[in-house]
Amino acid sequence: MGRPTLAVWKFASCDGCQLTLLDCEDELLTLTGEIEVSHFLEASSAVGEGPYDVSLVEGSISTPADLDRIRHVRAVSRKLVTIGACATAGGIQALRDFADVEEFASVVYARPEYITALATSTPIAAHVPVDFELRGCPIDRGQLLEVLAAHLAGRRPDVPVHSVCFECKIRGNVCVMVARGTPCLGPITQAGCGAICPAYGRGCYGCFGPAPAWSEGRPNTRGLLPWLDMTDDEADRVLSTFNVAAFREEAPPGASGGSARGKRP
């Protein structure tokens, strides 16, 4: 019996999550001894035939052609793992979901009539069944290796679902929001980055997307907003980054109720 086969696919994205796999360096040598990389155009033009045991999918669905291609990827993949904010939440390009995509195209392109795009940028799970989602912008190298190792061992990946605040406590960070009044999305953001930004004195900006609350399975984004000391426009901007669609689903524009100064519970 041969080695399990791996395919890596790109949709609307910046390639950063695919590069995370290449950045595994020494671990990649061990990995390729256990898994046959059959399809990975970022690394090689050689393409092995499917079906593939595991497919890693980066990027969101943003064109009609993407819809057809992701159905093909699902059909030739025994397991499909989405990697990164684009694939799991629509990415920063999901800002189009709250605007007029035709207006965007008219400003960006000299001949917008040649551009074919969907009105929305949506995650892979909105179109086909997904076996596992790996968050981040970009994803964490250690978590990616854990997902692949879990597949080889026939178990579910051990990836945290708690908030960045847990990682701050583990690192011994002083809370930037409590001690310095710095706006921080750590309480509502899923762990995975190691609390890099708070460790260097700045607030978390939510690159791993919303963390599930223990009681409801979703973050209390509305509850956090009054503690950020921001106007509606400022709060909307903070939530409008890599996981804009996911965060705005929890707290749509204007949810902070105006300037939060003096309105904390």
Rank of each mutant, 00 (worst) to 15 (best):
A125E: 05
E113T: 04
P112L: 02
C137V: 05
A65F: 13
E102V: 01
A105I: 02
D131E: 14
E58W: 00
V81W: 11
S60V: 11
A94E: 04
S62E: 11
V73S: 11
C86W: 09
R69C: 05
D68I: 15
A75S: 12
Q143M: 05
L56Y: 12
I115L: 11
P138L: 15
R71E: 01
T82C: 09
E102S: 01
H72V: 12
V73N: 11
D140F: 01
V107W: 07
P112D: 02
G84D: 03
Y109E: 14
E146Y: 12
Y109W: 15
G59Y: 14
D131N: 13
V73C: 09
I139F: 05
A85V: 10
V128R: 10
R135A: 15
A153M: 11
S62W: 08
D97E: 05
A119G: 13
P129M: 00
T116A: 12
I92C: 10
A149L: 00
C137Y: 00
G90K: 15
D97S: 08
D100K: 11
P138C: 13
V81P: 11
T82Q: 10
T122S: 02
A125T: 09
L134Y: 06
I70S: 06
R69I: 04
L56R: 13
T116Y: 12
V108G: 04
V76E: 07
R69L: 09
H72D: 08
R69M: 07
I139M: 09
G136P: 10
A65T: 11
S77D: 06
T88D: 14
R111P: 07
R111D: 15
H127P: 10
D100W: 07
L152H: 07
A105S: 02
